[in-house]
Design a protein around this nucleic acid. Sequence first.
DNA 1: TTGTACGCGTTATCAC
DNA 2: GTGATAACGCGTACAA
Lengths: 339, 339
Amino acid sequence: MSRRPTIRDVAREAAVSTVTVSRVANAPELVKPATRERVEAAMRRLGYLPNAAAQSMRTNVSRTIGFLVPDLTNYPNAAVAKAAEATLAAAGYAMLLTDSDHDAAREARFLRLLRSRQVDGILLYLSDEDDPAVQATIEDLDIPLVVLDRSLPFGVDTVFSEHRAAMRQTVLHLAAEGHRELALLLPDLRIRPVRERAAAFVEAVRAAGLEPERQSVVHAEPLAGGPSAIGRLLAAEARPSALLIDGTRLLAAAFEALRQQGLVGRVRPIAIDVVEPLAAAMPEVVGIARDFAAIGRQAAQLMIDRLSGALSGPPRRITLASRAVLAEQAALPGACLGR
Amino acid sequence: MSRRPTIRDVAREAAVSTVTVSRVANAPELVKPATRERVEAAMRRLGYLPNAAAQSMRTNVSRTIGFLVPDLTNYPNAAVAKAAEATLAAAGYAMLLTDSDHDAAREARFLRLLRSRQVDGILLYLSDEDDPAVQATIEDLDIPLVVLDRSLPFGVDTVFSEHRAAMRQTVLHLAAEGHRELALLLPDLRIRPVRERAAAFVEAVRAAGLEPERQSVVHAEPLAGGPSAIGRLLAAEARPSALLIDGTRLLAAAFEALRQQGLVGRVRPIAIDVVEPLAAAMPEVVGIARDFAAIGRQAAQLMIDRLSGALSGPPRRITLASRAVLAEQAALPGACLGR
DNA sequence: TTGTACGCGTTATCAC
DNA sequence: GTGATAACGCGTACAA
């Protein structure tokens, strides 16, 4: 395992200067075909690969994008990351992925780390859009940034999801089915989608003419206090007849609570942003879905356009729709899930 | 947005040489405290961050690890990647993530790309362990490689999962419950876990004394032909009474087929390697589980030890267990899933 | 069409 | 304890 071949080795092998080798790689049209072939043959013979670190140093461009997510095992994060990676790779960019595990301190640290690693831009899923330290770090960034579905108090390129219409549709649908008590179960996070959904729920409940004091919005930790908060909700005398649940983890917690209290089939579960294979397995449960691949593609494309200069000027804000997909209650197995 | 400060700017600001600045960053104990503080102050004032590309060029070390997965939206991939990233980050390594989307050609390409990006090592989930081009690319690699649960015809550091014991246990359990016709549903991939499970199933069926010709192993594309292959299986006259299903996607396809044929509740579904929140939502379905976080940690640690020199010598093979977790059939809602 | 010369930001080496 | 200097691999003026 000897030293890896450099541009100089190739130059020697092909009996040209390093400049010519560099040109064969970066601007082949400037090199006479015969010379080019000689150089390419030498490259193949030696197994030459350009040294990205050296290129990056020389050009001040790494063709690498950082992506920071709160939790990669959360399906939306993974799906968006996957689509973004594919789009970036097609444009010649690699993706440096970091997972903050919902820790704002780690987020600030990773942002600096990515910066120090010379990434050309950052795609960002924040776990707390209010955190001042993180906000300050972001504002200090001197590279393009694309934020995913967060509201920040300054202008940034952002890919938003529209959450309100689908929520409204879902609530109206449930009201039309005769549900009089609804509950919305949300993770306890300070992020835009949670806030939008809560606000839209309250509005929609009013629009549907449901008694406001019999509807509830519960913020729960999916893992820690989640199940018990849900348990309390279900034990209340004005128990909801339908439960809108945000995310796969809370959905699992909700099922557990329903099972424990023998309420399966008596409370209709409606899932928001649920992992796709699960949605396929239990379509009767899905309420609101998003096209995560499209989100990832758009975010990556926005980044690519910023870096290529195809897009310049003030922060761009893209909004993608959510979809309400509700089966008829009549067609539901409802009573049959769990125990 | 002016030029980013370099080590020279800091040196000037602190009235020392660049060497001293470098030492403050890399070997602070060699610098007199007073000097060190002056330098650190200058760093903070200027917002200095070392240029990773320059470091990498000088030292030939990037402190970056590549991770290639077949599909990031597949829960096991994401969970392993997350744990690996956390372990690597704690050791000062960043993770360059690529997704081959189950395309062997892309795998070979990404391996070269990672190499060209000067990653110090590669963690590898292969989508086809038999592909000769990929195998050749791997053997050519001159950096540490940790393979995840694949059998390759040459020695490599590998983190395996043990699949057989749990499969055997599960089959015996089902036989004891009275099931006489079993079917195992696997993705159509040439990878070790699929082969191990198939082999263990055949063995276990024999050990349980079940009639071999009434048991089946079906390889199905999760998306394309999957549902129809499952449909045929269920339409056969010797229809299985229990279905062991590998992976979340096939599980979804299986539910769809069961629903279509009105067999929900008459065929017991048993899931292998299923996404965790789904397992929490439908515990009655889970059959075999693995600790993906442990897998990711072990793989990352193996890599770190290779790079630090803590581990040297012949390829290391680590094997982690699977867990059979079967609820009693009597306690199952069985008859109640889907419609 | 090709080559010479230099510098990107950092660290290893060796001298002081 | 600190500094001068060279070198890492590459791309780019500029010259030929």
